[in-house]
Structure formats: structure tokens, C-alpha cells
Simulated scan of single mutants.
Amino acid sequence: MIKEIIVVEGKDDTVAIKRAVEAETIETGGSAINKEVLERIRLAQERRGVIIFTDPDHAGERIRKIIAREVPGCKHAFLTQEAATSRGDIGVENASVEAIRSALVNVRTDYMAQGTEIGWNDLLEAGLIVHPAAAARRLEMGKRLGIGYCNGKQFYHRCRMFQITKEEFEAARRHLDEEEGAAL
């Protein structure tokens, strides 16, 4: 059984989580997250810890940001859009048992560190911002680092928040560059 309570968007997500692992969930009821739900999440964080596991889409990211802002110290599980898509529908409920388990094994802790080694110049040099293929590169780097896809500013924020080390970042970048080189 997973000790932390997993926060998901809806009932179908709960069903998918329970198919993959033994865990308890809190459902936000979609993007209209209210104070009562936030209070339950806050209590869960204090007593057992929380893993935020929302859909890899705009609404899911919005919910993730609201919860992370209101309830500091949460853990985060991420699915790629590919792993969460079925017949054009994106959501945790569409992910395979293996994809859900993998996301939960690779959970990241929400911790805003001062002096994190990753800087804007690292993102620039890696072609993650101000580059014709920046979005595609961020997508691949987000998969490799386990922090999901996001825009450049949010990618920088997540590198800091999840304490991505310079070594982790450079290893992911090397693999990405090698794969791109092999594809040419």
C-alpha cells in the first residue's frame, strides 16, 4: 500500500490508480477545485503526505499548480501525454497499469531549493528555450527527468522545485543529443 494519499481529478482516475496499486485517493472534481477539497488535501499532507497525479494537459497542470501553491511539500507523479492518451482523450484514466506504476515509482518531491545549479543559461545551451525545436526538446527532457512537459519558464521552475542536479540535467541532455544525432 502506498502511504501517501494520491490526488486525482475524478472517479475514473481513482479506478485507474486502484487497478495499478493499492492506494487511497482524493478527487478534486476537475478543475473547479474548492476550499473544502484543498482542506482535505492539506490534512492528508500533514498526516500521510500527498502525491499529486493529475492529467498531463492544461487543466491538470492548472490543478497541480493550485494544490502545490496552497499545500506546500507535496510529491508529484507525471505521465507523458502519450502514456495517458486513448482515442484522442488525455487522462490518467487512459494510462496502462505499467505507466501508472512507473509514474509512482518516479515521484518527485516539491521542494523549492535556493541555489539550485540549473540556470537559464543551462536551458539556453541545451536548446530548451529560444531554439526552433525548444518545445520538442523540453518534451523529451521532461520525460527523461520525470518532471513532465511545460513551457520554458515552468521547466526552469520545475528543475529548481524538484532539485534536478546539474549531473541529472547533463545526463538527460547527453542522451537527447545522442538520440538526435543518431536520427540524422
Rank of each mutant, 00 (worst) to 15 (best):
G142H: 05
A83E: 15
G73Y: 06
K143V: 07
K143R: 14
A20G: 08
K166A: 13
I26A: 08
A99P: 09
I63Y: 02
E93H: 06
N106Y: 11
A133I: 10
E22K: 15
L104H: 03
L145A: 02
R42V: 04
K75Y: 10
T116P: 08
S86N: 14
R64C: 04
L38Y: 09
T85S: 12
G91D: 03
G152V: 06
G148C: 01
A32T: 12
T80V: 08
I100R: 05
T28W: 01
G29S: 10
E117P: 13
S96L: 05
R174S: 13
M161E: 13
L139R: 15
R144I: 00
H58G: 01
N34I: 14
F162A: 07
G10V: 10
E9S: 05
Q163R: 15
A95K: 03
V105N: 08
E61M: 02
A83L: 08
N34F: 14
E140I: 15
A136M: 14
A77C: 10
F78K: 13
L38I: 15
L38R: 02
D57R: 03
V37I: 15
R137I: 13
G91A: 01
A83M: 09
S86V: 14
K166Q: 14
T116V: 12
E140C: 13
I63A: 02
A95I: 02
N121R: 15
G181D: 14
A23L: 01
E82A: 13
N151Q: 01
G119D: 12
F78G: 01
T116W: 11
E170P: 11
G127M: 09
C74L: 05
L79Y: 09
S102N: 14
G142F: 03
C159T: 09
F162L: 09
D57G: 00
V107D: 04
I66V: 14
A171V: 14
R19V: 07
D12A: 14
I5A: 01
L79S: 06
T25C: 12
E39R: 13
K75I: 01
D89R: 12
M112S: 09
E27P: 04
Q114N: 09
I41F: 08
M1D: 08
A95Q: 00
Y111P: 05
D13V: 12
I67Q: 05
A99F: 04
A103L: 05
D55Q: 05
N34W: 15
I118D: 00
V97C: 08
V92Y: 01
L184A: 09
I147D: 01
E27D: 05
T14G: 04
L124A: 05
T85M: 11
A68T: 02
V71E: 06
E46I: 09
P56R: 04
D177N: 14
A95M: 07
C150D: 00
A32W: 12
K65S: 12
Q114D: 11
I164N: 02
A77E: 05
E27M: 06
G142C: 06
T165K: 13
E179P: 00
V8R: 04
